[in-house]
Design a protein around this nucleic acid. Structure first.
Length: 724
DNA sequence: CCGGTGTCGCTTACTCGACA
DNA sequence: TGTCGAGTAAGCGACACCGG
């Protein structure tokens, strides 16, 4: 082993500070304050100024020192007698042994727990601080060193304040330890013991064992024990000598008898390691400490409370230390620190035990918390043991302990998770909104448990599982969050696209609908236009026909113009405006038996008798012959020639002849309405109408049917207007 | 990608008290 | 005295996160 000339961390320097302000012990870069400083840095100032001791195994040392010194087969003596733990970086443990037989004064020996032993430089804030209490008179420490004790003691830091109180007691413990070891191994405390130690992992191990004895001694000092007897018969807890080793793998054989001997327990030794044990056996060293509750080292409530308090102190410390300060410490270092804090409080547990105990009680707390925070459920603390077991709470968590943990979990995301994945519970928490508040609250990085996550989680929202009883689901991890974010984006994108497409479709539909409407209106318009056009064309056609007709009339055709139409029951009489200049003009139109009967007067044949005899029976003095073509629905059915006989310009008698054209008119009258009679009546009525005041009373008519028409009664009679 | 860390669930082994 | 169940420390692996 080499002397480390750099100074190592000394927790005593910070013993006056609250725990959260004390640096961790493994700050190898820690630099001691200048020696010129006064005692403001504590009584250890002198230790820095003290030159390293010269290693020596000179005689004159006490039995323990000689023993351990001889076991040092190589390198330095395990007792690197540098009293002050701050003397060198190598020093981590101090053993104060009264060497009563030498000089009569109290002498101190500082045991060097070699760093090389386990690679971990142990320091014990607990006993260190207690030693510090004894350092109130550092000036007196130096004289207390015994030069006669050998050169090995020359660089001791005489922590005589503590040593002077009961050095004898410590030595007795050490001696007892050795005797116990010798007894248990059936060996003496001499060279065999040394070899035994060499067979193990080195003398440092035994040195550490001794150191722990001293630690226990120091821890028990406040109890007022002044001698061995007091310890043996006094408080039972200090009576148990802690022989735990951090590297317990190498000390199984050593510690077993010690445990049994010093614990005073009758419990059988475990025949095999616990569970999937790695061979460790920590029972002995955990017994009785701080009110241990069992031979197997069950944690008492007080111990657990101390653990929680120390954990909280460390959390505060890390929270105040800086963002990543906690990450500069390994897990073991952190738990060792907690163990030391607990040791300060009088609870002797190693870091691993603390870690496991914390895991367990925190796990219980989480389960209870998951229940307590749900309103409506019966409180865990009000449940019977049976009910607890039925509910899966197969543990017994004290309310005090629960409260103690609960106080420190205000910002613990493991307890108050931010992002949860609902794994089945409808009340799955999705407290995304909590991130902001958490981010605001998470000023530091409280390293404990999930509180350490706070700083990180506030950044990315990642977290850990929140529940141990599957009530709330799991915390979302980064992948889940990223996936959800992508999913949200995709969902939003899909929604936007769908809405856009929908809007576009609707717009397109609207456009198409409008186009359809327009086309329909256009169609209707075109229909109306067609109708109008048809009407116009029809009118045009009619007009053209009329024009053509007129043109025909003008060219000598035989069509006229309808002026009036008179309904005469089954016969209609239509007044005609005559056109004097035309040869053929419509003289009369009427309806007979539903047919339109039209009389066209052949004016160009006016006066022609066609060889017929018009025998007027009266004193007729003048005659006027007229020719008519009778059409029924456009078909010529009859030709009529009549002669108007006048007496003094007064119509007196009409004689006429009818000639059948076609087959529309029956040859003979069979009874009922006679078409021929009606046609003749229609003509006579028209003549009567034309001669209104120029007709004698009575004025008769006689019409002779040409064969094949037979005569009938209706062909003769008085001329009269049928409208009357 | 890897190591360290914190958390959690599950398991194992042990202790201890109750009970036959 | 042996058995059994409860309680629990402890081991172990998985998981997730962070930082290098």
């Amino acid at each position: 082993m080499q002397h480390n000339l750099h100074h190592r961390f000394d927790p005593n320097l910070y013993s006056h500070l609250p725990p959260h302000q004390q640096p961790l012990p493994d700050d190898t870069t820690w630099t001691p304050p200048p020696s010129t400083l006064g005692f403001a840095w504590g009584s250890t100032q002198t230790s820095y100024d003290t030159p390293p001791r010269v290693e020596s195994t000179g005689g004159g040392v006490g039995p323990m020192y000689a023993l351990l010194g001889e076991t040092r087969g190589r390198g330095r003596h395990p007792f690197d007698l540098q009293l002050s733990p701050t003397a060198t970086m190598d020093v981590s443990r101090t053993v104060l042994v009264q060497r009563s037989g030498q000089g009569g004064g109290a002498s101190t020996q500082t045991m060097h727990a070699s760093v090389l032993d386990d690679g971990v430089s142990m320091h014990r804030p607990n006993h260190m601080s207690r030693l510090a209490l004894s350092q109130a008179a550092p000036a007196g420490s130096v004289p207390c060193r015994q030069p006669a004790a050998g050169a090995a003691m020359q660089d001791q830091r005489a922590d005589v304040g503590g040593v002077a109180e009961s050095p004898r007691c410590v030595e007795c413990i050490v001696c007892r330890f050795n005797s116990l070891r010798a007894t248990s191994e059936g060996d003496g405390a001499g060279a065999a013991m040394q070899e035994r130690r060499l067979d193990l992992c080195g003398v440092a191990e035994s040195a550490r064992c001794v150191e722990r004895i001293v630690c226990r001694y120091n821890s028990s000092r406040p109890t007022g024990d002044g001698d061995v007897g007091g310890r043996e018969g006094g408080a039972s807890k200090p009576d148990h000598v802690d022989v735990e080793d951090d590297d317990a793998d190498d000390e199984d054989e050593d510690e077993a008898p010690v445990k049994e001997a010093v614990s005073g327990r009758t419990k059988k030794q475990p025949s095999k390691v616990r569970g999937k044990a790695k061979g460790k056996d920590k029972e002995g060293d955990t017994n009785d400490e701080g009110g241990g509750s069992g031979a197997r080292g069950n944690w008492s409530l007080n111990e657990s409370l101390v653990l929680v308090q120390c954990k909280r102190d460390q959390d505060d410390y890390f929270a105040n230390a800086g963002t990543n300060f906690s990450r500069m410490k390994t897990k073991d270092q952190k738990w060792m620190d907690i163990a030391k804090r607990m040791e300060k409080e009088g609870v002797r547990r190693d870091g691993e035990q603390c870690m496991k105990r914390w895991e367990n009680i925190f796990r219980w707390y989480r389960k209870v918390w998951d229940r307590e925070k749900d309103s409506g459920l019966q409180s865990y603390f009000l449940m019977t043991t049976k009910a607890r077991k039925e509910k899966g709470y197969k543990f017994n968590l004290d309310r005090t302990l629960y409260d103690a943990i609960h106080i420190m979990q205000g910002n613990n995301q493991a307890v108050h998770p931010l992002n949860l994945v609902d794994t089945g519970n409808a009340q799955g928490q999705q407290s995304q909104q909590g991130e902001q508040s958490q981010a605001a609250a998470g000023g530091g990085e409280a390293d404990t448990s999930a509180s350490e996550n706070r700083g990180a989680d506030t950044g990315d929202g990642c977290g850990r599982r929140s529940s141990s009883n599957d009530i709330q689901g799991k915390r979302k991890n980064a992948r889940q969050l990223a996936f959800e974010a992508v999913t949200d984006v995709m969902k939003t994108h899909s929604t936007v696209v769908a809405e856009s497409v929908d809007r576009a479709s609707k717009r397109q539909c609207d456009v198409l609908q409008r186009q359809c409407d327009i086309m329909e209106r256009e169609a209707r318009t075109q229909e109306r236009q067609c109708e109008v056009l048809n009407v116009g064309q029809r009118m045009l056609c009619e007009a053209l026909l009329k024009i053509v007709g007129n043109s025909e009339i003008a060219r000598g055709g035989h069509r006229g113009v309808v002026v009036t139409e008179v309904d005469i029951g089954h016969r209609n009489c239509v007044g005609v405006r005559r056109c004097e200049s035309m040869d053929i003009q419509m003289a009369l139109r009427g309806r007979v038996l539903g047919r339109t009967i039209t009389f066209y007067e052949m004016r160009h044949r006016q006066g022609e008798k066609d060889g017929r005899l018009f025998d007027f029976v009266g004193e007729v003095t003048g005659q006027e012959v007229g020719h008519y073509e009778v059409d029924a629905n456009g078909d010529t059915i009859l030709n009529v020639v009549v002669a108007l006989g006048y007496v003094d310009d007064m119509l007196r008698e009409v004689v006429g002849y009818t000639t059948k054209v076609g087959r529309a008119i029956p040859d003979r009258w069979e009874g009922g309405v006679d078409v021929l009679d009606d046609i003749v009546d229609l003509l006579m009525s028209n003549i009567a109408n034309e001669h209104d005041d120029l007709m004698t009373v009575p004025a008769d008519f006689r019409v002779w049917p040409d064969p094949p028409l037979h005569d009938r009664p209706g062909l003769r009679g008085e001329i009269r207007n049928i409208d009357e």
